[in-house]
């Protein structure tokens, strides 16, 4: 039988134990909505708190979902800073009027190609779209690696290609294809990919890369750094990568970036966080720990990466990738999400 008084006391103690965690902490604090995975961004946010004493509370989710949430919340949004894993979602927020202009001391740290033309978001790190492949399987099947992302719809790759159509980086790549090739060609490519048996890994590039390494699929279109990060845990991983040549739409170099919400009550503090993420400490973290390309001068690039200047990018302005809505509708209509 329960001893009721003891039970009630324990219960009260348990309920109390959550309250401190939920109550606002003393001192300065920021609310960050992050479309980047916690394992990639939390360590550097923790360092920011340690160095500045500013507490950071974070909402994690998929990049489009979190951007969507900000729009749904409208003026009620508690968010101060949005961190997205691609320029498209940042552009979409900027287009919807959700972001405030950034001051010049933030903007001037980043080269023009990696920030918004309106000055409402900046890139924090760069990432290249690559083709990952399983070398053993490629050899066993006698496959030639495709020379363009458009070649992946060919019959010889049927059922062998993996992708992550719910992932923001993929979505941005599709937007780039729409800008470069037009909506009709892009929609047809998506439909052909689905018809060719492309295997969907939802929003998880990690699972896509693991699947390629295991031979579950043979090729995958993804961001460059997942392979590097997985190989840190298991150097023997059966996984290689290459970049589509000659300015192919599949060799987009995109950014993970951040902006300050127009509804934020603490724009100064929010800008301070972004400045910190553009500082040498954070930039070194991005290249060393998450295997990305730093965006500010004077940071040594992780030597394991394909040199950024050897990637011939398609002719595109990242600020033109802001029509995420049409892209998402197109991806949904293609059936890619249902695979």
């Amino acid at each position: 039988m329960f001893k009721s008084r003891v039970f009630v006391l324990i219960l009260a103690a348990l309920v109390m134990s959550v309250l401190p965690a939920s109550a606002q902490e003393e001192g300065e604090s920021l609310v960050v909505y992050s479309g980047r995975n916690e394992t990639l961004i939390a360590p550097i946010l923790a360092q920011f708190t340690e160095e500045t004493g500013v507490a950071v509370q974070v909402v994690y989710g998929d990049t489009a979902a979190v951007a969507n949430q900000i729009l749904e919340e409208g003026a009620n949004s508690p968010a101060d800073v949005y961190i997205g894993q691609d320029a498209g979602a940042l552009g979409a927020l900027s287009k919807a009027g959700a972001l405030a202009p950034l001051p010049s001391d933030v903007l001037e740290r980043v080269p023009d190609v990696f920030k918004s033309q309106q000055g409402e978001w900046v890139g924090l790190s760069a990432r290249a779209r690559v083709l990952v492949y399983n070398p053993t399987e490629v050899e066993a099947l006698g496959l030639e690696l495709p020379q363009s992302i458009l070649d992946l719809t060919k019959p010889e790759y049927a059922g062998l290609v993996g992708w992550a159509p719910a992932n923001a980086s993929f979505q941005s790549n599709v937007t780039a294809m729409r800008v470069l090739l037009g909506d009709d060609v892009t929609a047809k490519w998506l439909a052909d990919m689905v018809a060719n048996g492309a295997v969907s890994y939802g929003s998880s590039n990690t699972n896509l890369n693991r699947a390629v390494a295991s031979g579950e699929v043979v090729l995958g279109i993804t961001n460059h750094y997942y392979m590097h990060n997985l190989k840190k845990q298991d150097p023997a991983l059966n996984l290689e990568q290459t970049v589509f040549p000659a300015g192919d739409p599949g060799s987009l170099v995109n950014v993970a970036g951040a902006g300050v919400l127009a509804t934020s009550a603490k724009p100064g503090l929010a800008q301070r966080l972004i400045l910190y993420l553009l500082g040498s400490n954070a930039q070194t973290y991005f290249t060393e720990q998450t295997s990305e390309y730093p965006l500010v001068d004077g940071i040594a690039v992780n030597p394991a990466l394909i040199p950024l200047d050897s990637i011939v990018q398609p002719e595109i302005d990242l600020s033109d990738l802001d029509d995420l809505q049409t892209t998402l509708a197109m991806i949904e209509a293609s059936g890619a999400l249902d695979q």
Binding site: D62, A64, A166, G202, A329, E332
Partner: peptide, 8 residues
């Protein structure tokens, strides 16, 4: 997935 990856 619809909730998470579309604006709709």
């Amino acid at each position: 997935t619809t909730y998470n990856s579309t604006f709709d």
